[in-house]
């Protein structure tokens, strides 16, 4: 049913191709507070026939219909979450640009923090292991390798008299 609604909406938009750009003057609500809420909500809702545009940005007729719908619900006294629920019930999760946390999106939401944590832990384990296996950690870091000693000697020997560029 949801799918059918989307397809229908898509078909309608393709047929009616009149250009309009994002929020139109005649859509704006009289109450600035309510209008502000409508704008914030619009930024989170997808224009389903566009490529990844919110209905706030899109110039498609469907986006206009959705913007008007959002304002209609707001003036009917719906809270923000009620408006969202209403739209999801009508158009499916696809309408949300920020997916809700549910079994299907667990990985989407958890992978980024897990990647950071995993990377951090991997680094910690790795540096610990290298500290232990590397020539007894601390001292090795402070000492120059024989190769570096040689380079240092060469450097000092080759230093031109007078000033030196930092």
């Amino acid at each position: 049913m949801k799918r059918a609604a989307v397809i229908l909406a898509l078909a309608l938009t393709v047929m009616a191709g009149s250009p309009a750009r994002a929020v139109q003057p005649d859509e704006i609500m009289a109450d600035p507070v309510k209008e502000g809420r409508a704008r914030e909500l619009s930024k989170e809702l997808r224009c389903m026939v566009c490529q990844n545009q919110s209905i706030d940005d899109s110039d498609a007729p469907l986006a206009r219909d959705l913007r008007l719908l959002v304002r209609e619900r707001i003036s009917a006294g719906d809270s923000d979450s009620q408006v969202i629920d209403f739209l999801v019930a009508r158009y499916g999760e696809f309408v949300l640009l920020k997916p809700r946390f549910n079994p299907h999106t667990v990985l989407l939401w958890l992978l980024p923090p897990l990647a950071l944590m995993g990377g951090g832990i991997a680094l910690w384990v790795y540096s610990n292991r290298r500290q232990r296996t590397g020539q007894s950690g601390e001292d090795a870091l402070m000492k120059l390798t024989p190769e570096e000693e040689k380079r240092l000697e060469r450097l000092l020997a080759a230093e031109p008299p007078g000033e030196k560029a930092d």
């Binding site: 997808r46 999760e93 696809f94 640009l97 999106t105 989407l108 992978l111 990647a115």
Partner: peptide, 30 residues
Amino acid sequence: TACATVFIGTLYPLALEVLTGEKISVGAPF
């Protein structure tokens, strides 16, 4: 990690649709 986040956000909806047929959007707010 930032790169991985963008990667996941961009490809997750495609993968989900191919695997389960469910359509979700991942956009600016995410």
